[in-house]
Simulated scan of single mutants.
Amino acid sequence: MPESSPVNTADAGLEVQTYFVRNRNVLVARAPFSELYVDYYLHLSTHHIQVDPEHDEIFKRALAAFTLHCASRPWNEMTAWTIHFQEPLLNVFLTGDNETGAVTGRVFTENIKEMDHPIFFSDIVVPRQPKRRSAVDFSGSDPLKAVEAYYAQSEQRPARYFQIAEEEFVMVSAHPDCDMRWFEDLSVDRVRSLDRDETLSLMERRIYRWHCGCNQKRMMEVLAPTMKADAGGLFGDDDKIEIRCPRCGARHVITREAMEAFVAAA
């Protein structure tokens, strides 16, 4: 398989800090997401992607929840979420690689199958282990609540999300012997004052960047089977076609000549 374009480590990225709260036995992950949102909007602009404002807000909340989740997971884990919403009808896709700190995703609004209820899919890949998939139901259209439902049903331990500023989010996840009464009584104001009221021990600082890694070669690999079977149907009378990356929606233009050369060399 053609390699992905590497992450640009010269970019400062988003720092996510994780803490252990002593005597409460919870993990706290938190970050201000302004910088990551700027990179997301630059991506939309570069590839001429237009997202409905309501869908954009849902995606940004999901991106924050996903990144905090990744920061709380092992370094060798790759994760992908697909969150299906009924109202509005859309799918949010997110994927991240903890080894590189890359996170990306997109909103799907076309050809979305209506279901009986919203549903949350999680796929986890760890080297030398079978892929794990979970699917849980949830209610409403808030991605933070969807992730909390996933933790309760699939992770079998609770987690709560809080938006403590316009673009700053916190995840609090329970560990064994968690003080559940304290955990359940948490509010936005109490989470804002954790540094003052509780004893926090810094565990990690992780850097995440908006990055997919898609490139022309990877897109041509996707198109290769169709090209071999029906080149005329793929290109018609055109000398080039446009394909959107299924992971991030990036626009790639593939010429017939380049596609023919790729298939011949395969």
Score class of each variant (00 low, 15 high):
M1V: 13
S5V: 03
S5M: 03
V7S: 01
N8H: 09
N8W: 08
T9W: 14
A10C: 08
D11L: 10
E15R: 14
E15C: 11
E15Q: 15
T18L: 01
Y19S: 06
F20Y: 15
V21L: 11
R22V: 15
N23F: 00
N23A: 04
N25T: 09
N25D: 14
V26D: 05
V28C: 10
A29Q: 05
R30S: 11
P32V: 03
F33R: 02
S34M: 06
E35H: 06
E35K: 10
L36T: 00
Y40E: 05
Y40I: 05
L42Q: 01
H43D: 01
L44S: 04
L44H: 02
T46G: 03
T46K: 10
H48W: 01
D52L: 11
P53Y: 13
P53Q: 13
A62C: 06
A65Q: 08
L68T: 04
H69K: 06
W75Y: 14
N76F: 08
E77Y: 10
E77S: 12
T79R: 10
A80F: 03
A80Q: 07
H84K: 02
F85I: 09
P88T: 04
N91E: 10
L94I: 13
T95F: 04
E99Y: 08
E99V: 11
G101L: 04
G101Q: 11
I112S: 05
K113Q: 07
D116P: 01
P118H: 09
I119R: 03
S122Y: 01
S122V: 09
V126D: 07
P127Y: 10
P130I: 12
K131C: 06
K131D: 01
R132I: 11
V136E: 00
V136T: 09
S141M: 08
P143R: 00
L144D: 02
L144A: 00
A149R: 08
A149S: 15
A152G: 08
Q153C: 02
S154H: 06
A159S: 15
Y161L: 02
Q163W: 06
Q163G: 06
E166W: 05
C178T: 05
D179I: 02
R181K: 12
F183C: 04
D185I: 07
D185V: 07
L186Q: 13
V191T: 04
V191G: 01
S193E: 15
D195G: 07
D195T: 11
D197W: 05
D197E: 10
E198M: 09
T199S: 12
L200H: 09
L202P: 09
L202V: 09
E204D: 08
R205P: 11
R205G: 14
I207S: 00
I207E: 05
I207L: 05
C212F: 02
C214Y: 02
N215A: 00
Q216H: 03
Q216G: 00
R218G: 02
V222F: 03
P225M: 04
T226R: 15
G232R: 11
G233F: 13
G233A: 13
F235C: 10
G236T: 14
D238H: 09
D238Q: 10
D239F: 06
K240N: 15
E242L: 04
R244P: 08
R247C: 10
R251E: 08
V253A: 03
E257L: 10
E257Y: 12
E257P: 00
A261M: 03
A261R: 03
A264C: 12
A265G: 09
A265I: 01
